[in-house]
């Protein structure tokens, strides 16, 4: 890292395309979005070029604050579950032999061959009244009537976890793969039980993967509105859905921009907080 920075001075030409790309496709759109958020909606179509803070004031209304709270809650819950499932999966996958690694990897990659949207519709078939899940549970006499899971909070959580889990698994896997197993052996040799070796060696050394996994799942889970729309019906409204609606049905681009800006600041703060709590330098560049 340090040497890369030092060399950077003489290699700025090589970095130029990257800067152009970043400015063109990341910095400018964000700037545009922020500018847009201070304008007002035009009567019929488009925006009026008059400065206003009205959009941000509107976010402070209980309705929208509630949406933010709801989104955060769902994001925390989904990310938590994804960590619990994804970390062990990725960690143990990295430790398996080549054949099993391939098999486990295939299990993760196959779903990606189909559109995420279509896969979510698949969950409707599973969750709907008298759907696959109900039939199985009733067939096994675990429940005696349909659970009515579709369009419920748990269904949305399952959808979130299902959609974002691969990112966590792959992030953890890539860092667990690099974990030199002789370090674990050294720790065992020096007197650590396998659990202690995990806490003092494996976990700290795979933390970068876990952290980037959390970033990769937490941020999208704030914005993945279509999951809540498809599996939650209209009952669960997330910030992403509101932005989507304001942009399409509401035709209020400035308000959508303001919502996006707040969402972005919020997630950025989250990352910053997380970095501070864990004292990790691994997310350098992200914030």
């Amino acid at each position: 890292m340090r040497s890369a920075v030092k060399k950077g001075k003489s290699n700025w030409l090589l970095l130029l395309p990257m800067y152009i790309f970043t400015i063109l496709f990341v910095a400018l759109p964000i700037l545009y979005m922020f500018l847009l958020s201070f304008l007002s909606r035009a009567e019929v179509w488009g925006v009026d070029f008059t400065f206003t803070l009205e959009n941000y004031k509107r976010i402070l209304e209980p309705l929208y604050l509630g949406t933010f709270a709801e989104s955060l809650k769902l994001a925390f819950l989904s990310t938590g579950l994804i960590v619990l499932i994804g970390y062990p999966y990725g960690y143990f996958m990295a430790k398996m032999n080549a054949v099993w690694k391939k098999r486990m990897m295939l299990l993760i990659m196959i779903p990606f061959l189909t559109s995420a949207l279509i896969r979510l519709y698949g969950w409707i078939i599973v969750f709907r009244s008298n759907g696959v899940l109900d039939k199985i549970l009733m067939g096994l006499h675990i429940t005696d009537k349909p659970l009515k899971l579709l369009y419920s909070y748990p269904a949305v959580v399952v959808g979130m976890v299902y959609s974002l889990l691969p990112f966590m698994i792959l992030a953890v896997y890539s860092s667990a793969e690099k974990l030199d197993f002789s370090l674990v052996e050294a720790s065992r040799d020096l007197g650590a039980s396998s659990l202690k070796a995990f806490w003092t060696i494996s976990l700290p050394l795979t933390l970068p993967g876990l952290l980037s996994g959390i970033v990769l799942t937490f941020i999208p889970s704030m914005g993945l509105f279509f999951i809540a729309d498809i599996l939650g019906g209209n009952k669960i409204v997330l910030v992403g859905s509101v932005i989507h609606e304001q942009l399409t049905k509401g035709r209020n681009q400035p308000f959508a921009a303001a919502l996006s800006a707040v969402l972005m600041i919020l997630t950025s703060l989250m990352i910053r907080l997380y970095k501070k709590l864990t004292g990790s330098a691994e997310l350098e560049g992200l914030m």
């Binding site: 030199d180 002789s182 370090l183 052996e185 050294a186 065992r188 040799d189 020096l190 039980s193």
Partner: peptide
């Protein structure tokens, strides 16, 4: 178990 032995190792790659 390795942690229960009064034996220590200097690993090839130092670890």
């Amino acid at each position: 178990e390795p942690n229960k032995r009064n034996v220590n190792t200097v690993f090839q790659n130092y670890a």
